[in-house]
Design a protein around this nucleic acid. Structure first.
Length: 568
DNA sequence: GCCGTTTTCGGCCCGACTGTTTTCAGTCG
């Protein structure tokens, strides 16, 4: 018996109970029990007090005991016998919840998608009390859509959708202020929808204009305070727009940024103090509603530091809030150490990239073009590297407010050798080693390649260590814990590639790396000036792993960077 | 079903929207 089995059992029980139309709080209790186990870092054998955990009581405890003693749960078995399996997909139909599904089953013996469709088509659903013609039509419509609905979109796709919507919002003069909220603001790897908070005195005008300018596939809801639509923007995606007044902005932004669990925890905290949080403000004990200038003020009101959106996850961040002061912020970043220029496959000259980095207030930066193996990217030969070094050194003399270091993003070749020899590498300030080829090699071969780079005394950092592209490919599947061990042993930096296509390393590995005492660099891997701005979302992603300022080498002052990285 | 520095009973985060009602239930985020 392991913890996962218990968690899955609780989730199944909750699902079946929901289909029976059970009390939502009872259903929630099983989900909560599953969540308690999920959040507990200990393995089952390390937990001698599992039945005493908060959230585990008589009912859920009996399930655990059953599983431990017999390997199966009587309760789950009963439920599985009672509830037809065909009902499960019905919960995926928008507009259908436990209550309605239970009613449908009771009144018409509905036990599957097929029987529900047949019942709708023969107009049997509309005569059930509480249902009507419109509901019947809506169910039928949703059944047709089922399966065609897109799943979650990767963050890089959501990013371009958000930018396009923001462009439209800027064009509506009745909007005084707006912000994206939701999972994109939290820098989640994938999103199922996009949310916007809009400050306006004329919500109905804004709503009408939005409905004109947006590529709306379907309008889900259109009221005075919100517009919910499905947009057709290359991909189908749900979008929510909330209309609020200026003084409601901060609490509305907080509310619609979520996460859901974070909000629940905040509201419980408020409640314990006799107050009530809603998207419109904080209702005090005397009934007056307090509003805030900013989210920071809102958190401060509850004696909490500003919790960055990307850290608002399961609610435990509120308990650990005092640790947030040590976590890296975008303002701490002093340089970007991975970017490309026209020398290889970048879109801008070295000088243009330098100017862009100066504008961003960096004190230092590294130019890291590709190497000869990567022909498609116009990778540099040793000769070209040497002339690039010359150009960079010359350029560097022109600027006294930024230090430009000579680097490279060197390929680790399929046979486990490196693209440049040591003589050349030692002429460079900062050497990135990367895998861009033969992703389908065995893990053993991949690790041999990575080890070759790790062992080399001139290599400073391994870039995008797994090669993943979010929502598109898994990468070359390295043994990351082993990689982290080597990084510690050979004193190498691991990259958090902040390009939203990658976010590589992933959160779980970043946590592991920091735990092991390995340094992380957050870089943009920019191939164009505007991509340098991915530093911000990259840092947001780093915050998810609670990376401390000291762990992230980009926060180090120039002198420390020179001492501990460049001259190492 | 779970929980208790007001509580062992009566809450459980809070509000918008829709559709089916004629004051509210269900669903959603």
């Amino acid at each position: 018996m392991n913890k996962k089995t218990i968690i899955r059992t609780f989730e199944k029980i909750a699902l079946y109970m929901e289909l029976l139309g059970e009390n939502p709080f009872k259903v929630g209790a099983f989900r909560k029990a599953a969540n308690v186990l999920e959040l507990d870092p200990r393995s089952l054998s390390e937990m001698d007090d599992i039945l005493k955990l908060k959230g585990i009581g008589k009912g859920t405890g009996a399930v655990i005991t059953d599983l431990m003693e017999k390997g199966e749960s009587d309760l789950l078995k009963e439920l599985e016998e009672e509830v037809p399996k065909g009902l499960i997909p019905l919960l995926k139909v928008p507009g259908l919840g436990g209550k309605r599904i239970a009613k449908l089953r009771e009144a018409l013996g509905i036990d599957s998608i097929e029987s529900l469709r047949a019942a709708c088509e023969s107009n049997k659903v509309s005569v059930i009390p509480g249902f009507g013609k419109k509901t019947e039509e809506k169910i039928l419509h949703e059944l047709e859509q089922l399966g065609t609905r897109k799943g979650k979109l990767p963050v890089w796709q959501v990013e371009s959708i958000v930018k396009a919507i923001e462009e439209e919002l800027r064009g509506i003069k009745e909007i005084t202020r707006f912000s994206v909220a939701g999972s994109f603001r939290r820098a989640e790897e994938k999103s199922s929808d996009v949310d916007f908070i809009i400050v306006t005195d004329e919500p109905s005008t804004v709503r009408e204009k939005l409905m004109e300018v947006l590529p709306i596939e379907e309008t889900v809801a259109a009221g005075d305070s919100k517009l919910s639509v499905v947009l057709d923007m290359a991909e189908l995606i749900d979008a929510d727009f909330r209309f609020v007044t200026e003084d409601q902005f901060a609490t509305a932004l907080h509310h619609f940024t979520g996460s859901k669990d974070h909000n629940v925890k905040m509201r419980q905290l408020a409640k314990s103090k006799g107050m009530k949080i809603s998207e419109y403000g904080v209702e005090l004990e005397d009934g007056t509603v307090k509003t805030f200038e900013s989210e920071a003020d809102f958190f401060a009101f509850f004696d909490l530091p500003f919790i960055p959106p990307s850290m608002r996850k399961d609610g435990t961040e509120i308990d650990r809030a005092q640790e947030i002061a040590d976590v890296v912020t975008f303002e701490d970043i002093r340089g970007d150490f991975h970017m490309h220029t026209t020398w290889s496959d970048g879109g801008y000259s070295i000088r243009e990239m330098v100017e862009a980095c100066r504008e961003r207030g960096y004190s230092h930066m590294v130019i890291t073009d590709h190497t000869q193996y990567l022909r498609v990217a116009n990778g540099l030969t040793p000769d070209r590297v040497r002339s690039q070094i010359e150009e960079i050194r010359k350029l560097n003399e022109e600027y006294d407010d930024i230090e430009i270091f000579c680097g490279t993003e060197m390929d680790i070749l399929p046979d486990g050798t490196l693209d440049f020899d040591d003589d050349l590498l030692q002429e460079l300030d900062f050497v990135i080693a990367s895998i861009h080829s033969n992703f389908n090699q065995s893990q053993e071969k991949i690790m041999k390649r990575l080890h070759a780079a790790m062992k080399n005394p001139y290599v400073s950092m391994i870039a995008h260590p797994t090669g993943r592209i979010i929502g598109q490919r898994d990468g070359y599947n390295p043994d990351v814990p082993q990689l982290i061990e080597w990084a510690k042993k050979y004193d190498k930096i691991l990259e958090l590639n902040g390009n939203p296509h990658r976010f590589d390393l992933a959160v779980e590995y970043l946590e592991m790396a920091q735990e092991a005492g390995v340094k992380i660099a957050v870089n943009t891997d920019a191939h164009a000036i505007d991509q340098l701005d991915h530093m911000e979302i990259g840092v947001k992603y780093a915050q998810k792993a609670w990376l401390k300022k000291e762990t992230v080498v980009n926060t180090w002052p120039l002198e420390q960077f020179i001492r501990e990285v460049i001259r190492k």
